[in-house]
Amino acid sequence: MELLSYIFWNPDDTLLRIGSFGIRYYSLCWLAGLAGAYFMVKWLYRDQQIKESLFEPLFLYCFVSILVGARLGHCLFYDPAYYLSSWDHFVEMLIPMRHLADGSWKFTGYEGLASHGGTLGLIIGLWLYCRNLKMNIWTVLDNIAIATPITACFIRLGNLMNSEIIGKVTDVPWAFIFTKVDQYPRHPGQLYEAIAYALFFFVGWFLYKKAKTRVGTGLFFGLCLTLIFTFRFFVEFTKDIQVDFEAGMPLDMGQLLSIPFVILGVACMKGGKWMGRLGAKQ
């Protein structure tokens, strides 16, 4: 393989350091993704003439539920043998610190977040939001779904900056050599996902402009789940395994966890079409 034809990828994962404190690109990508979704949903609420007072608590519900869900998803789906092996490790699952061998604690941030857990956490958080504020859950889910691919896109860009969730070794001309990992050209799976999620946002936005009245039927929520997790299922074939126990499995954990979300997405889309026809007859 001719290494000169590939992209050598070795960025500093930290944008700015102040003493021992650093601002990492991954954190900034998370914030950018959440901010993009925040302003998108705010615009949607205004466009649909939903009271601004109902929007204000939404960000807190989403932020907390995504973070908690993504963290628990990573720990319980991908590394339960570690996090459930002792009380100290269990505590590490809940706080952004790691217990060192000398007995001290080190701030690490939340190293390890799973998108499937984040999605499940978000759904639970939105259910609580709708219950407490007396909102139509399908209206909220559809609006969040239109904006969600923005966040997903930026999160994968953060993974790219961290040189994590790397792809399998390949000889495609656009392969990346993640020099922090090894010297082999690999699929930039993070970039594949980021580009796909950006496209999915424009698909949802185009559909919203054409069929705004379908918000509240579950159609947009179902479309978002179906597009993202169908793509996630197939892009996993280009990725290297994330944890050792996936070796030898016919489908990796990411694929297994994607299947229920695809089924849920298709069911919601079918329900959305049925409700749309029902509304047209009335």
Rank of each mutant, 00 (worst) to 15 (best):
L223E: 06
D102S: 05
G22R: 05
F234Y: 14
G167H: 07
E193S: 13
I177D: 12
F202M: 12
E56L: 15
G279W: 00
S85E: 08
E236C: 02
M93F: 13
I165P: 13
A194C: 13
A32T: 07
V91S: 11
G218Q: 09
R277N: 15
A194H: 12
K134N: 14
N162S: 06
L44G: 00
E52H: 07
F206V: 13
I165L: 15
Q242M: 12
P149K: 05
L199F: 15
F220C: 15
K281L: 09
F221D: 08
P11K: 08
I165K: 09
R214W: 14
G271Y: 00
L207G: 12
Y78H: 04
I124D: 12
C224S: 08
F39P: 00
W87L: 07
C62H: 00
A194K: 11
I7C: 00
T139P: 00
W105T: 04
I263T: 03
V68S: 10
L31A: 14
E111N: 14
G279A: 04
F59Y: 01
G167Q: 06
S20W: 01
L251N: 10
G167M: 02
Y83F: 11
Y129H: 01
F245N: 01
V68L: 14
G158F: 04
T151H: 05
G109L: 03
H116L: 07
S115R: 09
Y110M: 03
L4E: 15
Y25G: 02
T14N: 04
L28Q: 07
I166W: 15
R131I: 00
G167E: 06
E56T: 15
T217S: 08
D252R: 09
S53Y: 05
F234H: 05
F176D: 00
N159K: 01
L58D: 06
R186H: 12
A101Q: 13
N136Q: 15
L207K: 10
K168A: 12
V140D: 11
L94N: 12
L94H: 11
F55S: 02
L4M: 11
F201H: 07
